[in-house]
Structures are given as structure tokens and as C-alpha cells.
């Protein structure tokens, strides 16, 4: 209660002050290595490092907030935060609703991981995270879609046999496959989906979009973006030409 009174007092104080440009960066915090909560309880990962660098270049004051994946777009458009950096691929469907910056990763592969390489990815049960492009893809194929709220649960579903395979970003699955001691293997062909990952913003925030576009371009030009991609996703990761 005391905390709440303090909160109310602080609100009353800050309400009168001038508005510095503070950008609230929304992320999921459950999609390593893109973004996750590290053991100290802070947002960490490729997007954290990239976002902080972009904010530095654009001279913005950024803070990070986490939000569940399934409500991440609704909470952006209702103004709870200003950007989404959560491994969100640019798709025409999403572009009807929110604006994207230019992509900060090249169009990436999505892949199936399963307990055996010959798992039935055509007509079997495929786990995917709700509301992802991968889930939409599975819904269109002949396979049976099994939806989970987090990416972590989709991998768990394959390991315990609930699903025949998991379909997700290859870079997200890669560490789990590599560290499973051969339990998880790639199945089928990788599929290229989406137009790369971009920063999601409200369509009305045109200035912010320009600012981030410029910052991303400068990181593409001096090669620092490619370095960062290799650092987080390994030597084999796709980089910008």
C-alpha cells in the first residue's frame, strides 16, 4: 500500500515536468537467444544488445519491458510501450496493423526439429507458438497444429512426445538442438518465411520509424550489425551482404 501511495505521489510530481523522449521497448523475454530474462532477472539477448546500440546511435533514452507474446501487438497499439523487438518477422498481415522498421536480420529460415529426422512433418502433430508466422504456416499445411503460449513449451512438447515436431525460427531452435546430445534433430527442409525481423511500431509513430531506420542503416553500413548477428547466432547465421 505504501508503495502505491508513493507511486501516486511520484506520478503527481512527474506529471508537471517536461517530456524527455523516453522509448519503452517491448519484448517477450522468452525467446533465447533473441531475447530472454537472464539469471540476474534482466532482459538480455541479441535484441537487447542491438536495441541498446540503436538507442545510443539515435540518442534515445530506452527502457525495456516484457509482455506475453500473444498480447504483444495489442499492448503496442494501445500504447503500453512504443516498440516491439521480439523476433517478430515482417509479414504483410502484421503490416496492416503495425509499422515495421527496415529488417535488422535477413529473412531467416524456419525449421522443424523432432526426435527423429524422418518425423512426419507433412501430416503429423506440429507444435508452434501461438500467433507466430510458423503457426500460421502449419495451419495452412496438412499437419495438425498444436499451439503453445511460449516457444519453450513447444520444444518441451516434442521432447515429451506430445508433438511429432516443433516448427520455429531456426536460430531459436539451434541451441536446443545442439545441446540435446542427439535427442533433438532437424527434420525436413528449412522453410524461408517472412521478410526478416524488424522493429514493430505504431503506424502513427512515423518519426520514430525514421529514427530507427536511420540507426539500423548506419549499423548495416559499418558492419557492426553483422558482427552482432554472428556473435549471438554463430558463424553459420545469415548476415547482410
Amino acid at each position: 500500500m505504501k508503495k502505491l501511495i508513493l507511486a501516486a505521489a511520484a506520478l503527481a510530481l512527474t506529471a508537471g515536468m517536461g517530456m524527455a523522449q523516453t522509448i519503452r521497448m517491448g519484448t517477450e523475454g522468452a525467446y533465447p537467444p533473441y531475447n530472454f530474462i537472464n539469471d540476474a532477472g534482466e532482459v538480455d539477448g541479441f535484441e537487447r544488445e542491438l536495441g541498446d546500440e540503436l538507442c545510443k546511435r539515435a540518442k534515445l533514452d530506452c527502457t525495456w519491458v516484457t509482455n506475453d507474446w500473444d498480447s504483444i501487438i495489442p499492448n503496442l497499439v494501445s500504447g503500453n510501450y512504443d516498440t516491439i523487438m521480439a523476433g517478430m518477422s515482417i509479414t504483410p498481415e502484421r503490416e496492416q496493423v503495425i509499422a515495421f522498421s527496415q529488417n535488422y536480420t535477413p529473412p531467416a529460415d524456419s525449421a522443424y526439429a523432432a526426435l527423429s529426422a524422418d518425423a512426419d512433418i507433412e501430416a503429423g502433430v506440429i507444435a508452434a507458438q501461438t500467433g507466430t508466422i510458423q503457426a500460421a504456416h502449419v495451419a495452412e499445411t496438412g499437419a495438425t497444429l498444436l499451439e503453445f503460449a511460449t516457444g519453450d513449451e513447444t520444444i518441451a512438447a516434442v521432447k515429451n512426445g506430445e508433438a511429432d515436431a516443433v516448427f520455429a525460427d531456426k536460430d531459436f531452435l539451434a541451441p536446443s538442438v545442439a545441446e540435446s546430445n542427439g535427442e533433438l534433430v532437424w527434420a525436413g527442409e528449412a522453410v524461408a518465411l517472412g521478410g526478416g525481423i524488424g522493429i514493430g511500431m505504431r503506424q502513427s509513430d512515423t518519426d520514430l520509424k525514421k529514427t530507427f531506420d536511420t540507426a539500423i542503416q548506419s549499423m548495416k553500413d559499418d558492419g557492426s550489425l553483422n558482427e552482432m548477428i554472428v556473435k549471438w547466432f554463430g558463424e553459420d547465421a545469415k548476415v547482410f551482404e
Partner: peptide
């Protein structure tokens, strides 16, 4: 849910 999920080497 967050703590219980499987953790890869990216975590401490």
C-alpha cells in the same frame, strides 16, 4: 513458468 522452462547454455 519462466524459471522452470528448459535452459540452454546461453544462461548461467
Amino acid at each position: 513458468r519462466d524459471l522452470g522452462g528448459a535452459k540452454t547454455q546461453a544462461f548461467s
